[in-house]
């Protein structure tokens, strides 16, 4: 299928700003789905609220646009209803780790089979540039006019320690890698987390004088390095990208099915 066959063309051009990284994530995700040979009916996409969450409106899957931070909670119900389908949950960094942080760690802990894509632009895009749990110390935002004193999460470490069984990080500059990572994340049986560093030139870029989308993508190119590279040893400030965790653990829906099979025949009290 052509890439555009996955798009609800009547809503294009989309609402995202020129150069917004979220568009690259959408572009890349389509190719991952296409490479996997999945039918549009095989995928349920559940999002919350934010610029990132608007992705559901544009893609021709089964799409559920929910509440700020709650996408994973809705998705949990959906997955238990349709364990046979692939569930993809794109989220903003605020969506996933601030208001939705609790749902995020618990979905990871349960290892329920779905793919969480965190489109990390380190800011609240939709509401106009307030700081998020990913903005980082010293960064500027409309609600941190004198510099942010909040420390940032590391999404990879958070997901990992919460129990996610597939954890990866990539950037919009590394879209080719992103395609491969998303393919693996989608087919992985368990809770997969893919953090994508995704530029918001309009707010994060402007507030922090990081230049336009091109400059921000160049900073992803220069500021990141594959996991375990020599460059990282020389320059610890580099952010690692690649697949950090990929392991098999009991998956929630499969385990619940086992319970049903076990107790269904048993005599009632």
């Amino acid at each position: 299928m052509a890439v555009r066959d996955y798009i609800r063309e009547r809503f294009m051009p989309h609402i995202w700003c020129p150069g917004c990284g979220h568009g690259i994530v959408m572009n890349t995700l389509i190719r991952a789905v296409e490479n996997l040979g999945l039918r549009k009916n095989d995928i349920i996409m559940v999002s919350g609220i934010g610029c990132s969450a608007r992705i559901t409106g544009y893609l021709d899957f089964h799409t559920l646009h929910t509440l700020h931070g709650r996408a994973l909670a809705f998705a949990t119900g959906v997955k238990l209803g349709r364990p046979d389908l692939h569930i993809i949950v794109p989220m903003g960094d605020g969506d996933a780790t601030a208001i939705g942080g609790n749902h995020f760690i618990h979905a990871a802990r349960r290892n329920i089979d779905m793919t969480a894509i965190i489109m990390n632009n380190r800011i609240y895009g939709m509401t106009g540039g307030q700081y998020s749990p990913l903005s980082g110390y010293g960064r500027m935002a409309t609600t941190a006019p004198y510099g942010n004193i909040d420390q940032a999460f590391d999404i990879v470490e958070l997901a990992w320690s919460a129990g996610a069984t597939f954890v990866a990080r990539t950037t919009t500059y590394h879209a080719h890698d992103m395609v491969t990572i998303l393919e693996k994340a989608i087919v992985h049986k368990g809770f997969s987390v893919v953090e994508v560093l995704s530029q918001c030139p309009t707010y994060y870029g402007r507030k922090n004088k990081l230049g336009d989308a091109v400059e921000m993508m160049k900073s992803y190119q220069k500021g990141t390095t594959p996991i375990g590279s020599n460059a990282k040893k020389q320059n610890p400030d580099l952010v690692e990208r690649g697949i950090f965790v990929q392991e098999e653990k009991p998956e929630y829906c499969t385990e619940y099915e086992k319970i049903i099979q076990k107790v269904k025949g048993e005599k009632q009290r």
Binding site: A2, V3, R4, I7, M12, P13, H14, W16, P18, G19, C20, G21, H22, G23, I24, M26, N27, T28, I30, R31, T172, Y173, A175, H176, V179, A213, M217
Partner: peptide, 10 residues
């Protein structure tokens, strides 16, 4: 093609 945020290039 892969990096266009607007899917404008094919």
């Amino acid at each position: 093609e892969l990096h266009c945020p607007d899917m404008a290039i094919e």
